[in-house]
Each structure stands twice: as structure tokens, then as C-alpha cells.
């Protein structure tokens, strides 16, 4: 049984709105990874990975363990470039909708 439960249907709609709305699928230009992307502005980026996409990411597979015990992979530069290209080509439309 889950722990933190929303008590209203509106809240569940908000959860979907903030986590899923307007995600555009972007295919990496260098590997097989496909991720969901949203850009509310030039500097804002949201990237939703799946375990399949993560397994496909060549860059992350190559990434060595980071020093000082830090093991979070910051970002994939190739995917970044692919997202930039998707913005250029108009696949990703930049802009937010009422805060999401």
C-alpha cells in the first residue's frame, strides 16, 4: 500500500500534468536512446528517461565512476546536442502552459 496518497481527483490530474504533459519524444542522434523532453524556456529542460533508453545511452555506458565517491551521472552531452537539434527543427516548441 502506498504511503503518500492524494485525496482528490484534481490532485491526480495535477500529478499527470506536471509529470507527463507536453513531453516530446526525442531520439538521440548518436545512439538508440529515446527520451521525453519538455522545454518551458531556452534555459529550462526536463528529460524523462526510461530504463531502456538509459541502457541504450552509449555515453553513460562509457562514463567512468566519478571521483570522490560521487556516482551521479550529470548529463549526456550527445543527448543535449540532440535536444538542441530538435528545438532547431521545430519538433520541440519552447514555452510553458500555466506553470507546466
Amino acid at each position: 500500500m502506498p504511503g503518500i496518497v492524494a485525496t482528490s481527483e484534481e490532485t491526480r490530474q495535477d500529478e499527470v500534468r506536471y509529470t507527463q504533459a507536453r513531453l516530446v519524444e526525442v531520439a538521440c542522434l548518436d545512439c538508440l536512446a529515446r527520451v521525453g523532453v519538455k522545454k518551458n524556456s531556452d534555459h529550462h529542460t526536463q528529460i524523462q528517461w526510461s530504463s531502456a533508453a538509459l541502457a541504450d545511452c552509449a555515453e553513460f555506458r562509457r562514463a567512468e565512476t566519478r571521483p570522490e565517491g560521487r556516482d551521479v551521472k550529470a548529463a549526456c552531452p550527445r543527448l543535449r546536442a540532440s535536444i538542441d537539434a530538435a528545438v532547431q527543427s521545430g519538433e520541440i516548441v519552447i514555452g510553458a502552459e500555466d506553470g507546466y
Binding site: N40, S41, D42, H43, H44, T45, Q46, I47, Q48, W49, S50, S51, L54, A75
Partner: peptide, 9 residues
């Protein structure tokens, strides 16, 4: 699942 988010400051 991995998720990334950059805030526009």
C-alpha cells in the same frame, strides 16, 4: 527511472 530537470534561473 532517470529524470533530469534544469531550472531557468
Amino acid at each position: 527511472d532517470r529524470f533530469e530537470f534544469e531550472v531557468d534561473t
